Amino acid sequence: MKTIAMRSFSLALLVLILTASHPAAGQIPDLKPGGSVPTLAPLVRQVTPAVVNISVHGRVREDNPLYRDPLFREFFDVPRQIEKEVSATGSGVIVDARSALTNNHVVEGTSALQITTKDGRQFSAKVVGRDSPTDVAVLQIQNPTGLKALPLGDSDALEVGDFVLAIGNPFGLGQTVTSGLVSALGRTGLGKQGYEDFIQTDAAINPGNSGGALVSLQGELVGINSAIISPAGGNVGIGIAIPVNMARKVMEQIIATGRVERGRIGISLKDLHPSVNKGRTEGALIAEVAADSPAEKAGLHKGDIVTTAEGRPIRTAAQLRNTIGLARVGDEVKLALLRNGTPLTVLVRVAPATEPRNANAGSNRLVR
């Protein structure tokens, strides 16, 4: 058994070295001078100038612990909430000449905001708009000069096993690079945000990395690092990132209108179960269609299974919910579906959402 394991390790090492010796155009890993050691240094040099540290100062409102005591409430004028001065650090990613993406929770309640580049330059910035359900915020950099943007990739093209880098400002230490794999895709039910379709990675992510970049080996932004799952608050190899395709849609709406307008078509959704759906596990089952809704007008039926939206595969009900919820009101969404095993295609126009923004977060039935 030990001999087999050693042979497997040696083969994997040989594949890595051979891959590094003959990389595809524009890809990493490369070799250090002398051609002996694989390295990600060229990629790191290429992408890190676009990742910035964010320092925030502001005031937030939080529950007053004294308000919970009925005696204090009876004899003293105790407010339900109190204001608190906060200072914090996080990370962000420059995505064009003067705009940066970060997490909503990094800049929420901010009154002053400053970004610092890898080479130590400092710029003031303001929040253009925030979207709490996706935990995305867009910043505008004041008087930008000589900044480098990170190109946006396609997070839908990611596969489990792809190598990625996580870049950010953990614990306020300064810019830090870690590496790992895409561990899982389409993570939902984590209770983090209202719209969940997370990339899971084992690249080390720690407090302060929030808003930083998850980068592919092609040097493209594929995710915005958002949170960690950890019993002790430190990295245990389970980090989550917001897919860049979701962040891009939020950014486009915020830049255009200053906010994100939620859309709906009038359906409720369920995930597929193999025992019920003839072994099928990928897709979104339409559980209900609201009367006089855009979905009913487009011809959608209860029991239809949606397999793609705008040409992109739909794996779960949450993924379809995200797609519709982030589509612009008035747009038509092209859905491919199965009805009693027969493939169909429909166009449905997105109407304004009427339910509360987080009405169905965490539920196994998702209403859109």
Rank of each mutant, 00 (worst) to 15 (best):
S36V: 01
A24C: 08
T39V: 13
G35T: 05
P49Q: 14
P29N: 00
A25K: 13
G35D: 08
P42R: 11
P42L: 10
S36C: 01
S36L: 04
P29T: 03
G35S: 08
P29R: 05
P23F: 01
Q27H: 15
L40G: 03
A24Q: 13
G26V: 11
V47S: 07
V51S: 09
P23C: 06
A24N: 10
S36G: 05
G35I: 00
Q46I: 02
P29I: 01
K32Q: 07
S36W: 08
A50K: 15
P42I: 04
A24K: 14
P29E: 00
L31D: 00
L43D: 01
P29G: 00
P38F: 07
A41I: 05
L31S: 07
V44C: 12
A50V: 14
V51E: 09
D30M: 08
T48F: 11
G34L: 02
P49N: 12
L31Y: 01
K32M: 10
R45K: 15
R45N: 15
K32G: 07
V37I: 12
G26W: 08
T48K: 15
L43H: 07
V44A: 06
A50D: 03
L40C: 00
P29C: 03
R45D: 06
A41Q: 10
L40V: 05
P33E: 03
P42Q: 11
Q27Y: 12
Q27L: 13
V37Y: 06
L43T: 01
P29D: 00
G34N: 05
Q27G: 06
T39L: 10
P49S: 10
K32V: 08
D30N: 13
S36E: 03
D30P: 02
P49D: 03
P23Q: 12
I28L: 02
V44E: 07
Q46M: 13
L43F: 09
A41L: 10
L40K: 06
P33C: 07
T48C: 12
P38M: 06
Q46K: 15
T48I: 15
T48Y: 09
P33A: 11
P49A: 13
Q46V: 09
A24M: 12
A50M: 13
Q46E: 11
Q46Y: 14
R45Q: 14
A25F: 13
I28D: 00
A50S: 15
P49R: 15
P29V: 02
P38K: 07
L31W: 01
A25R: 13
G34C: 04
L31Q: 02
G26Q: 09
G26E: 10
P42M: 07
K32R: 15
P38G: 04
G35F: 08
V37Q: 09
Q27T: 13
P33Q: 07
A41D: 01
A24S: 11
R45T: 13
V37R: 14
G26H: 11
V47Y: 09
K32H: 08
A41E: 10
I28V: 06
I28K: 02
